[in-house]
């Protein structure tokens, strides 16, 4: 069987991956009608953005078309991706091990746990992309935001998006992998991590107001540069004053290094957790009641 797998062609290698992504979509949408699911998917982030709108208006009294509001709004809109993907992939192991009790079979399947987790996350990534686009459209339509993405900026913007997406998937895989060694009561951990990232990457406020050492941590994680790159591409200017001295290429380079580091740590975490889970029998150990 292993020989057959080694010599399998590309479409058949893609097959398990697509099946996992399809499964991810079904589970994430809770087998709901796609329209109903997307409505739910859009409403939450939209109201999250509306909270920001009111906060900004009552404090500053400035119009929402102002530059500062645009920076906050865009950062918040794109950070939805991190919250959704990290929370989703981070809970896959708990779902499959405790609720559906399928983890042992998935482990035996030829896809591999890392690829399986990534494929499950891809389904959420696709759904979240729609949420982000909708939130951005509402920003332009209702709040007068103007996006300045020129064709010349498109390659840079695409690279920024791809690298940020990879870093986010890797973070999800890292957390998902580590949950193999946890009891089911650790289900809040992925949400907690995305909350911490929200604070540190300056999604809605500049990282310059963070006290040391938090501001130093903010400069180490790739999402800070991801959001800065997105803001520069979409709005024409960055948000973080202390990063203003960096060129676009330097932002991209820092994002690339951060992403590579996150992927490496995620891979090591997954391998270690997988090894320990199999060695200690935790892989299919049901921990709920």
């Amino acid at each position: 069987m292993s020989e057959a797998l080694e010599h399998s062609d590309a479409p058949s290698r893609l097959g398990p991956w697509l099946a996992a992504a399809r499964l991810g979509w079904a589970i994430e949408s809770n087998w709901a009608d796609p329209f109903v699911f997307m409505t739910y998917q859009i409403v939450r982030p939209l109201f999250g953005a509306l909270i920001l709108v009111v906060m900004f208006k009552i404090v500053t009294g400035q119009p929402t078309s102002s530059a500062v509001f645009g920076q906050m709004y865009v950062g918040n809109a794109f950070f939805i991706l991190v919250v959704q993907c990290v929370s989703c992939i981070g809970l896959v192991i708990f779902d499959d091990r405790e609720r559906y009790q399928m983890l042992r079979y998935i482990y035996l399947a030829p896809i591999g746990l890392g690829a399986y987790l990534a494929a499950r996350g891809m389904a959420r990534l696709a759904a979240t992309t729609v949420s982000i686009l909708f939130t951005l459209a509402v920003g332009a339509w209702l709040f007068g935001l103007r996006y300045h993405l020129s064709p010349a900026d498109l390659p840079y913007f695409s690279l920024i998006l791809i690298l940020g997406g990879i870093a986010t998937l890797a973070m999800g895989i890292m957390l998902g992998g580590s949950t193999m060694l946890m009891a089911q009561n650790g289900w809040s951990m992925p949400e907690g991590v995305s909350g911490v990232l929200y604070l540190f990457c300056g999604a809605v406020f500049s990282i310059d107001i963070l006290p040391w050492p938090f501001s130093a941590v903010a400069r180490l994680i790739p999402w800070t540069y991801w959001l800065e790159g997105i803001r520069r591409s979409l709005l024409g200017s960055g948000y973080v004053a202390s990063l203003a001295g960096l060129t676009n290429a330097q932002i991209l380079l820092r994002l690339g290094i951060g992403t590579a580091g996150t992927v490496a740590v995620a891979w090591l975490t997954l391998r270690f957790a997988e090894y320990r889970a199999v060695a200690t029998g935790k892989l299919d150990e049901k921990t709920d009641h």
């Binding site: 900004f56 009561n185 907690g192 909350g195 911490v196 809605v204 963070l210």
Partner: peptide, 27 residues
Amino acid sequence: LSWLFFEVTLPLLAVFAFALIYRGLHA
């Protein structure tokens, strides 16, 4: 105790985020 930790920490993270937004806006 891990439940207690997360159930206190998660709302606190939201508190930090919104408080820092207000700080950033000089509210």
